[in-house]
Amino acid sequence: MKQNEDILGNCPDAEKIFRVPDGYFESFAKLMDEKTAETDTKQHGRMVLANWWKPVSVAASIAAAIVCTSLYINEKHEEELMLTIEHETLYSQLEDLEIIDYLASEED
């Protein structure tokens, strides 16, 4: 009981209670050196990819915009063409008499 009450009385040396593998701190600096170099290589790889990807994505966006615009224009043109053909077909189907009647009614 007395021992328990005094447990905080004498601070234990944490480094004696908790141990580390032999030479841990000496090898840790070397390990970190390798890890940071590895990180740099990865970051460099990402930068190279980003540098390559940026112009490609810009070019692809421009190409996509051009394709969309030309598709839209083509579609409009086709619609207009279809309308003209439809009108011409409609007119060609009118009887001569119907035209004469129409013109006569206009004159009245």
Binding site: A14, E15, F18, V20, F25, F28, A29, M32, D33, T36
Partner: peptide
């Protein structure tokens, strides 16, 4: 930078290790 960071690691790793170790307990 790289060399300087090596110095930072050597200087501070021990103190930081013990702070972390006493929190997480396992090496």
């Amino acid at each position: 930078r790289s060399e300087a960071f090596g110095v930072v690691v050597k200087t501070h790793s021990k103190q930081l290790y013990w702070l972390i170790r006493k929190m997480v307990l396992s090496h």
